[in-house]
């Protein structure tokens, strides 16, 4: 069935869903984020929340939408005013990952299945600049795009009951970090000592859709050192401004 995009539907009484071409791409992400910015700038923030995923924007209202048609017209006006060619101002975060066997529970499996050496896996995983498409699944979980095709591996057929906090995993063509321990089905290749979510800060996560992430490998010794610095509050994450 063919549809016209953006396509508007409601999700219950308090939310409007705006959908774009069903594809996962940097181009769609940029379009979605430019529309998101325009909507956020035009609607009163505390009463409305705009969440994006790969190809959707969900506009949630704190109370029941009185006139859905009027609201959709307002949203259409917002997107017609959006500058879709505009660069997205974002940040590039350099994230330390320890790929030691103690953490990388599935490194050997990945090495055998994809016919790669462990150093090769680490090189392939630390080379790309990944895009944060959105946060979801768990508080502070980043959906990252940009994984090297050679690292694609299917999820575990039976998920682990407990994946450790900080675990770095691969599931199909996605990679990500578990912000807290949780059941999970991704293949685990390492662990990052960095915190991605702090319920006691506002905002609780400094990462947002459109940001970039690059991993760098650290030894077990460095990992422990960074963990110590993080708990003492004197670890400085390397962050750069980034335009895309």
């Amino acid at each position: 069935m063919s549809r016209q995009y953006p396509h508007f539907t409601t999700m219950g009484e308090k939310a409007i869903l705006m959908e774009f071409e069903p594809e996962i791409s940097e181009k769609t992400l940029k379009l979605v984020l430019n529309y998101k910015n325009s909507i956020e700038n035009n609607l009163s923030q505390p009463l409305v929340e705009v969440i994006n995923t790969y190809n959707s924007l969900l506009i949630t209202y704190i109370s029941t939408i009185e006139n859905v048609y009027d609201e959709i017209l307002t949203l259409k006006r917002c997107i017609s005013e959006a500058n879709i060619g505009k660069n997205i101002n974002s940040k590039l975060y350099h994230i330390p990952v320890c790929y030691d066997e103690k953490f990388g529970l599935d490194l050997q499996l990945l090495a055998i299945q994809n016919m790669l050496s462990v150093p090769e896996i680490i090189r392939l995983h630390t080379t790309p600049i990944y895009s944060v498409y959105f946060l979801g699944f768990l508080p502070g979980f980043l959906y990252l795009g940009g994984l090297d095709e050679k690292l694609i591996i299917s999820r575990k057929s039976t998920p682990r009951l407990k994946v450790e906090k900080g675990a770095v995993g691969i599931g199909e063509n996605q990679t990500g970090i578990y912000p807290k321990s949780s059941p999970g089905g991704w293949q685990i290749i390492g662990n990052s000592p960095v915190n991605f979510f702090d319920k006691n800060s506002l905002p609780p996560s400094e990462y947002k859709a459109g940001d970039k992430v690059k991993f760098y490998a650290v030894t077990m010794e460095e990992y422990l050192e960074i963990s110590q610095e993080i708990s003492n509050g004197n670890f400085q994450l390397k962050v750069e401004n980034y335009e895309s």
Binding site: P46, E49, V50, I51, N52, L58, T60, I62, F134, L135, G136, F137, L138, P139, G140, F141, F197, P203, P204, S205, K208, A209
Partner: peptide, 10 residues
């Protein structure tokens, strides 16, 4: 909680 969905908070 309203307004924290963008951080993945239920």
């Amino acid at each position: 909680r309203f307004g924290f969905g963008k951080f993945g908070v239920p």
